[in-house]
């Protein structure tokens, strides 16, 4: 792997019973690069996300992560405290359902501030200022800062999750269908927001989605998965506009055009 690769995987395999969820998958990610993993459900894309982020161990293969100091770490050989610390600071995870990630009994400000406090922030006023700044960045009115998330709409909840994740300026964020389950108009706003934040903050993203238009809008590169294998990968527009693999051609031709 090259000197500035942020995340690299070689030969990742993982089996669940009779199902080969991952079959000898390689992947690489550069700083600031958005990589979309697409495929239909059961193709192994979420398994790949879980393995890359260290939440799941592969049966075979290895994934490395380069820390800000330039040192390489085997994601699955990392001591648990280090992996958890990484997930609280330099990494982020955005789930499809924000209710799985947010603390619904804690105010919006507290949700955004949690990662700061987990990193040792102990100045209430500064935590609050930062939380307010982030709420504004994700277009949540500052007057909602002390409200509980259970009073928020689905789109607001997802934006709150993004603020909560990005507040520590992670260099790598894993996203699992971040716009799934939202109304189309809400999706568009969220996509634009993610696109802008990720580009401005130079965040690398591994994005799992079944929605090719989401991949097209957000991702520099795309990996198409089918039955645990990567069947095609490359520049997003190249793969989507000139698909070579039969499965990719099927996926692309199955998309409804507005």
């Amino acid at each position: 792997m090259a000197d500035d690769t942020l995340l690299a995987a070689r030969g990742l395999s993982r089996r669940f019973g009779a199902v080969q969820a991952l079959d000898n998958v390689d992947a690489e990610l550069w700083p600031g690069e958005v990589l979309a993993i697409v495929g239909e459900s059961g193709s192994g894309k979420t398994t790949l996300l879980d393995v890359l982020s260290g939440r799941l161990r592969p049966d075979r293969g290895v994934a490395w992560y380069r820390d800000p100091a330039g040192a390489l770490h085997d994601v699955h050989a990392m001591p648990e405290p280090m992996l958890r610390a990484l997930h609280r600071s330099d990494w982020g995870f955005v789930r499809q359902n924000p209710r799985d990630a947010l603390r619904l009994g804690v105010t919006a400000g507290g949700n955004v501030g949690e990662r700061l406090m987990a990193q040792g922030a102990r100045h209430y006023g500064r935590i609050r200022d930062t939380a307010q700044d982030w709420l504004e960045r994700v277009e949540i009115d500052a007057s909602r800062m002390d409200d509980l998330p259970r009073t928020f709409s689905g789109g607001m909840l997802q934006r709150l999750q993004i603020a909560r994740t990005l507040v520590t300026h992670p260099r790598l964020v894993f996203m699992d269908e971040p716009t799934g389950g939202l109304d189309v108009s809400v999706q568009a706003r969220l996509l634009d927001l993610i696109r802008t934040l990720v580009a401005n903050l130079h965040i690398a993203v591994v994005l799992v989605t079944h929605d090719l238009s989401v991949a097209r809008l957000l991702a520099h590169r795309i990996m198409v998965m089918q039955r645990g294998c990567v069947v095609e990968s490359g520049l997003t527009d190249q793969v989507l506009d000139d698909p070579h693999h039969p499965y990719t051609q099927l996926l692309v031709s199955s998309v409804l055009q507005a």
Binding site: L235, D237, D241, D242, H244
Partner: peptide, 9 residues
């Protein structure tokens, strides 16, 4: 033209 742009392989 698309090949020149790297859009088609």
């Amino acid at each position: 033209l698309r090949m020149l742009y790297g859009n088609y392989r």
